[in-house]
Design a protein around this nucleic acid. Structure first.
Lengths: 347, 347
DNA sequence: TGACGAGATTGGAACGTTCCAATTATTAAG
DNA sequence: CTTAATAATTGGAACGTTCCAATCTCGTCA
């Protein structure tokens, strides 16, 4: 029963050539005769040979595996990011190692170590909260290309791809101001993160630009989830002077805010303007369709993967920090009458 | 710059022992002296050694990798399933290879082949639509344990873990009937899938049981997504005799149905009863909270992983087909006044 | 003292591939 | 007909680990 593994020498014997020739065929080398190539391929099919990548990796130090570690796969933003990465990585002949850290940096350390042991040729990381440059140090020390997405870690000295959070938040708030809103809240997100900081700064700057005060009571943090959105809007509605509009930390929070509003018999869009951030797929089909700052998670995953592949093939490359432009997609959740109007920002 | 890889012989030399001893230490063998173990570990830290799993895999034919392939990572049901798997797999010292097929069986063939080349010791597969037993044949032929989740393929002869779709659908429809509904629709899902078939059969059986007719016009297929739900409810509302309630193929469809109702100024729960299937996390926090048949995707992922690990360690095991019990979670989207009441079904 | 066994340690042969240098067969040129 | 160039093919040495059987070092017991 315990069938022997069929190896390259088995098929060499079957095809009447040497194992070197078989290896050449496997690599699609040009210098093998068409007839023998056919013979070898026939033998491969015949014997049901499966290539052993471990053996290959051992010889040549590059592995055709890229790792992607995300902090919360449950959030569809990251799930979409992962499928974006997967797409380009696959078609480049690589395969994806995906791990979920659940925001735990201990777990993150483990999975990164494990990926290193497997000899990944590069890593795309959306770092867990509280990740420090020192966590990535061993990677850069051993020249493994790393691309950070979504959250940058400035001191780490690796490439990064983040969205233009500041510009996006400003555009959203400007839009609300144009619509006549004067009390605009910023809802959701953990205040101790760089992304929160950037979006909140954009929010504040847009208010100042319009000569409006940026009140602390209108900035309400929460978990960056749907449930967090519900609690944030509840808290906002407790204020003596209630806001009439809100920019939310992300789309999940925005959906939660909509839920919370409905629970109070307020219709999002008509009675209260809400804008999200990310543009996850459901944003388009939700009712009301969510006005949001589009980050295109899938596209971001694709670009991150391309950047990483470039670095892998180029060998040593200078780390680049790309901030990816972002656009406000106006739909219905901010009382819009204009549907699908789109504004380009930050080039 | 191009630093040499640190190998086991390097640290052997540094620690003044043989490479065999180092190997023993790496495997946590009991028969190495405490003092030398310490010396070796010190050298490992000192030189920044990283274990080379490719080399290890080459020698011993087992790889500590398990693969998981899902048909649509964008659907949060599968994302949650994946994190469930990841959790138990990690803590068993394995690492997860995740691939997304996007329902394309061609892609599925590729990723499965690739995983085989990497020597995965087992595979959890949520098959793409139209997967046939023959697609899995090479896996069973080479004794690689496989656990099918969500969708079973009877002829494949591998283990499977699916939810009790028939019982769940029956319970949901019974509940609607108890509430006095007489025109109940079944909305969403691709009619040519086994899961659709099972849920729809449950729906029909419950109607018959109550002596009610099962009308074809009330069964409306669509893509199993939020957008699909919107179109399905629109179609349902075109009927001369409209339904007053619906069991939806899954939660995503149910959310879409709610959206579509609101677009017609109907309030889900109050004006029209909707029940979902799956119980994704958002079901609880949505407004109105979704009544749904709870499948617990994360728990399902965990159980699938445990089943797979059991088969991996046990060597050859008889394939088991587990149908996982399911429970109706009554929340607000079916006009409930009773919140969080829970009915256990199918033991 | 000698023999024995347990506890530690070790050298070397695998594992399945790739790569290099070397070889053979084939063709073209002189 | 020889030589050179080109096209195909090949054996064997890596790669970094694990495993086996063999060895070495003690302490203990008769």
């Amino acid at each position: 029963m315990a069938k022997e593994r069929v190896t390259v020498v088995d098929i060499a014997r079957a095809a009447g050539v040497s194992k070197s020739t078989v290896s050449l065929v496997l690599q699609g080398s040009a210098l093998v005769n068409e007839a023998t190539r056919a013979k070898v391929n026939a033998a491969i099919r015949e014997l049901g040979y499966v290539y052993n990548r471990s053996a290959a990796n051992l010889r040549q130090a590059k592995s055709k595996i890229i790792g992607i570690v995300v902090n919360d796969l449950t959030n569809s933003f990251f799930a979409e990011l992962a499928v974006g990465v997967d797409g380009v990585v696959q078609s480049a002949g690589f395969v994806q190692f995906l791990a979920n850290t659940g925001e735990k940096s201990e777990r993150q350390r483990e999975v990164i170590a494990s990926m290193r042991e497997h000899g990944v040729s590069g890593l795309i990381i959306s770092p867990a909260r509280g990740t420090e440059a020192s966590d990535l140090a061993p990677l850069v020390a051993s020249d493994i290309p790393v691309v950070l997405v979504v959250r940058d870690i400035a001191e780490a000295g690796v490439s990064s791809l983040i969205s233009d959070n500041h510009a996006g938040a400003m555009a959203a708030v400007r839009h609300l101001i144009e619509r006549g809103h004067r009390r605009i809240a910023f809802l959701g997100g953990f205040p101790d993160t760089a992304v929160f900081e950037a979006r909140m700064r954009g929010y504040r700057d847009a208010l100042r630009e319009a000569g409006m005060p940026a009140l602390d009571e209108l900035v309400i943090g929460s978990a960056p989830s749907r449930a967090g959105g519900v609690t944030a809007i509840e808290q906002a509605m407790m204020l003596k002077e209630r806001p009439t509009a809100a920019l939310c930390f992300n789309d999940a929070v925005a959906f939660g805010v909509c839920d919370g509003l409905r629970a109070r018999r307020l219709e999002p869009g008509a009675d209260f303007a809400v804008i999200g951030f990310d543009d996850v797929i459901e944003a388009k089909t939700a009712v009301p369709a969510l006005t949001t700052v589009s980050v295109d998670p899938q596209g971001m995953g694709e670009r991150a993967a391309e950047l990483l592949l470039k670095q892998i093939t180029a060998g040593r490359a200078e780390p680049e920090s790309i901030v990816s432009p972002v656009r406000l997609v106006v739909r219905q959740s901010c009382g819009g009458t204009v549907e699908r109007r789109v504004k380009e920002i930050s080039s």
